[in-house]
Design a protein around this nucleic acid. Structure first.
Length: 516
RNA sequence: CGGAGCGUAGCUCAGCCUGGUAGAGCGCCAGCUUUGGGAGCUGGAUGCCGGAGGUUCGAAUCCUCUCGCUCCGACCA
């Protein structure tokens, strides 16, 4: 503890507090009315001579200890302990905001800033703070699991690419100003990748020679950059964004369509696991090229596009699907369209009671585009008859960082974010309503030790109201509320953020509930 | 890229029109009180007024240039 604090906090520009005064102030704090912790005094006496040699401190030890909610139970291994379980709110980089920064217009952007998830570093470019980083990691984890399950294989390609690669496909000039172009010290032309068709095709061209090595679906989760004319909506339309992109290589069109269908199922499973409703819709192929494409829209009242769909989608369960062909037929057989592609004739065939109109945020898109890149870049494998075959390709994107915003758009209320369990940065927050209390402190520590990284411990010296408000803002699925009255009897209150339900439970039962 | 607007304390903003000591609320720090839904009182710290140039005895304020950010439109995982 001492080393840790010395290293991290001891260099602040503060006047040195004379040892005598420090002792007096610390003593006062320990003896203050209502403080029922006599053990503080001997501990302080032991600690003070060491402390007096330290550089300027921000506060007397007793106060520091009270704030940190440590109840004076310092142990020799404290420094390690504190470093490992860093998610005590008092020691975390979670800079919440009471007021909304002026630049944020859309609800997810406001909430992400207010919850301390992200900070804008430049137009459309964000730093992800601990809470945001955890959400990103959780989304990426689920995306990864579903890609792997679909038979895709993870790789990691660089963010910086050579212009020459893009000249091969002809897209270096075609891509326009949205591509961020870079020149290195040797005047070589580089670019920050907006997508990776060219690069993955070059890799495959180099590595894959026989038809027996296909099909393959490499994917990676990597930062992309598209120099949008007008970044907006926070991470929903940033210039730099984290994307999962997969690329399928098959021998023929039939195989490519199978890959396409697999990916559609993987996408629907992914979105369902993320706790959101996403609907696949026929789409244009745009820059990528090709003739088969679907966009996936998350339903959210603040979405950018208007969407029309058949309520049959709401009943679908991708996690229960066993037959890919059947699932694909079902998905593509139900009416769904963005306002741009809305077809009134087809819409009128949907039974009126099943017609749904809403808003959607595009969080993914899949393409089949045949041999566009394998031809242009001459990636061919030797077929069974010795002839060269240009593989049939598809590409499949999921906006990982955009999903973080989209999930909030879909799941929030006036008080803040309502995280689905799967993506929440923490399953639970432990609210110590009376920091420094003889009953609440040990109980909170016990719960915190039991839950480990799954829990955030609000150990700050704040009023109950502040803790409640921030817990709601941050949106943890569970709030474990520990007040002096219940704590004395070993009871805690459990609040479910999504529903507002509250339960009075013994500690052990609460743990079971939270762990699900 | 076209149109509009905004840059003043960590955040939200006033002050600018009409030039003359840089402000409020919240947050932060210290103390006391309070303690189950963003408390109260007292004291304190914090600013290259985005940057550069100009006008003037004097510029946050007027003029010019510039950088950044936001909004509307076209574009987009």
């Amino acid at each position: 503890m001492f080393l840790y604090e010395l290293r991290h906090r001891g260099t602040r520009h503060r006047p040195v507090v004379p040892p005598s005064r420090l002792a007096a102030r610390a003593g006062d704090a320990a003896l203050r009315g209502g403080d029922d912790r006599p053990y503080l005094r001997p501990r302080l006496a032991a600690a003070l001579p060491r402390r007096a040699t330290l550089p300027a401190r921000r506060q007397p030890l007793a106060v520091a200890r009270r704030r940190a909610g440590r109840a004076g139970r310092a142990r020799p291994l404290d420094s390690l302990f504190v470093l490992r379980s860093a998610m005590r709110l008092s020691k975390s980089l979670i800079p919440t905001l009471k007021e909304t920064p002026a630049e944020a217009q859309i609800v997810s952007h406001r909430l992400m800033l207010r919850a301390g998830m992200v900070r804008q570093m430049a137009s459309g470019i964000y730093a992800w703070l601990p809470l945001g980083q955890r959400v990103l990691a959780n989304i990426a984890r689920i995306v990864r699991e579903e890609q792997d399950a679909a038979g895709a294989e993870e790789v990691l390609m660089p963010t910086i690419q050579s212009a020459d690669l893009w000249r091969e496909s002809g897209r270096y000039d075609a891509y326009g100003k949205e591509m961020l172009r870079i020149t290195d010290r040797h005047e070589r032309e580089l670019l920050y990748g907006p997508t990776n068709e060219e690069m993955i095709t070059a890799i495959m061209r180099d590595a894959v020679k026989s038809y027996r090595e296909l099909p393959q679906i490499p994917y990676h989760i990597q930062w992309k950059f598209r120099d949008e004319l007008r970044p907006r909506f926070g991470v929903l339309r940033g210039r730099e964004f984290l994307m999962k992109d997969a690329y399928s290589f098959d021998l023929d069109r039939a195989g490519a369509v199978v890959s396409y269908k697999k990916m559609m199922l993987a996408y629907m499973r992914t979105f369902q696991r993320l706790g959101i409703t996403a609907i696949p819709m026929r789409a244009d192929t745009g820059q990528i090229g090709g003739d088969l494409s679907h966009e996936f829209h998350v339903l959210a009242p603040t979405g950018e596009s208007g969407v029309f769909y058949d309520a049959a989608f709401e009943a679908g369960d991708a996690l229960a699907a066993t037959d890919i062909e059947q699932f694909y037929a079902q998905m593509t057989g139900i009416y769904a369209a963005t306002d741009e592609k809305h077809d009134l004739a087809a819409w009128n065939n949907v039974p009126p009671e099943r017609r749904r109109e809403g808003r959607g945020i595009e969080v993914g898109q899949i393409f089949y585009f045949g041999t566009k890149y394998s031809q242009a870049m001459d990636f061919a494998v030797t077929g069974p008859d010795g002839r060269r075959i240009h593989p049939e390709m598809g590409s499949y994107g999921i906006g990982v960082s955009r999903l973080a915003g989209a999930i909030i758009e879909a799941r929030h209320d006036e008080a803040g974010i309502i995280w689905p369990d799967a993506v929440a940065p923490f399953r639970a927050v432990i609210l110590n309503l009376r920091q420094g209390d003889a009953a609440t402190d040990p109980l909170c520590e016990q719960l915190y030790a039991a839950l480990g990284r799954e829990a955030l411990y609000d150990d700050r010296e704040e009023r109950a109201g502040v803790k409640f408000a921030e817990a709601d803002l941050l949106g943890h699925p569970w709030q474990i509320i520990i007040g002096p009255r219940g704590a004395a009897q070993g009871q805690v209150e459990l609040k479910r953020r999504a529903t507002g339900e509250r339960f009075e439970l013994p500690v052990a039962e609460a743990l079971v509930r939270v762990r699900g």
